[in-house]
Design a protein around this nucleic acid. Structure first.
Lengths: 221, 221
DNA sequence: ACTTTATCTTAAGTAAACATTAAGTTAACC
DNA sequence: GGTTAACTTAATGTTTACTTAAGATAAAGT
């Protein structure tokens, strides 16, 4: 789960980043509104924490800008403003939640969890920095989208689902290609090559290793 | 949209009921926890407003009891308690939001809307610059009306409702055409072609992408 | 170090899936 | 009952992915 923090006060940023990372989240930070906006254009986040008062683009405008393109990613405002009118403005701009400073870290974590539990099971498999979202049929490496064909996708998914276990060529042929008889073909090699190329995986010491004479194995490092 | 209010202070109940009804919501009330629990067993609500201090069963226990059976209906706590520890307890029990008394009616309404907009049928669906008004059965692209036939409309709506998720050909055939068996037909292609033509969507890099070998996916860009 | 064998890599041929058009069929409306 | 619009089927064209095959490279065995 990848969280973006857009906040200019360094103390708060560090406090949040450290705390959220300890909770197991991947955290990216931006110290002003326009930097935050840039990050959102290029990367995919699962949740956004937004300060109200920000240099360059303020939180409210940033929130509106995000919502033009993306209505789904949860946005939580962090703010010292505690007038009701401004709370309402934020919610109207498309925010999903609102926490007043000073807030307790525990409460923030609980509120974050609420938004994640609302996002129903989109089953995301991971292999190191590789993410596979089967409902979207999309693969990310370091949050960059990589386009795979049907077979490439199936093969990669198969290896990742069997992470840590050696998959023999015959098993792969049986489960991915549905070829149930002995058959000498080089198809697997060709697809492995394509996957490694597209995901930029080195043959030696990377997430997918070749077990000579047997097959392949996937592993987080 | 049907809202249940579980609250024992008569003044607040009346204030909320009247206000929410003016906003167009259907409102049902319960003045203690056990009565609220009974209502939930027998009726379906779209959102529940829950007081913390209640006769018979308190709000926290009621919340837990609801969540045993139903994990999805949004629950918002209304409470005078403002200690962080208790806020957290409420969220952990499965509540989705938390408003401290005294609260502004406007803020409450905005928070209610947040939970509804996360749910289904907000009547107007959007896909980038495409707007679908399902109640009026009308589609706009860049605010220009586009006339679609029944099936075209259903197919587009289906894809947009499942925005971000791949819809397989079989799913589409099942859910839009109500064909539940394997059947080789090219109907989907023909309608996709019609939709793309009418909405002027390019095959590459547009709101509706083809996932070769699987189906189609709609996405805001 | 040479041979053997397995895997990697590339390119070209083949097959499958999709896009597109037109014609045929059904259903709705006047 | 005739006419129109919508839906489906079928045929053709186009694109993309899959497979085969063959040469290059790397690992294991002698």
């Amino acid at each position: 789960m990848h969280i973006l923090i857009v906040e200019d006060e360094l103390g708060i940023v560090q406090f949040l980043q450290q705390g959220l990372q300890e909770e197991g989240y991947q955290v990216t930070t931006a110290n002003d509104g326009s930097k935050g906006f840039e990050l959102i254009q290029t990367q995919k986040f699962d949740l956004i924490l937004l300060d109200w008062m920000l240099p360059k683009i303020n939180g409210l405008d940033l929130c509106k800008a995000i919502r033009v393109k993306d209505q789904t990613t949860p946005i939580i405002f962090l703010t010292a403003k505690d007038t009701i009118q401004e709370t309402i403005e934020g919610l109207k701009a498309g925010a999903n939640d609102y926490i007043k400073k000073p807030f307790s870290f525990e409460e923030l974590v609980e509120r974050i969890k609420i938004h994640f539990r609302n996002q129903k099971g989109s089953e995301i498999l991971t292999l190191g920095t590789i993410k596979i979202d089967s409902s979207k049929h999309v693969v990310f490496k370091n949050d960059e989208e990589v386009s795979l064909t049907q077979r490439e996708f199936e093969l990669l998914t198969y290896l990742v689902k069997n992470k840590g276990k050696v998959c023999t060529r015959n098993q792969i042929l049986k489960d991915v290609w549905e070829i149930n008889f002995e058959y000498d073909t080089g198809v697997i090699d060709v697809f492995m090559n394509a996957i490694r190329k597209k995901l930029n995986l080195k043959i030696e010491e990377d997430y997918i290793k070749t077990i000579r004479g047997i097959g392949y194995i996937a592993n987080d490092l």
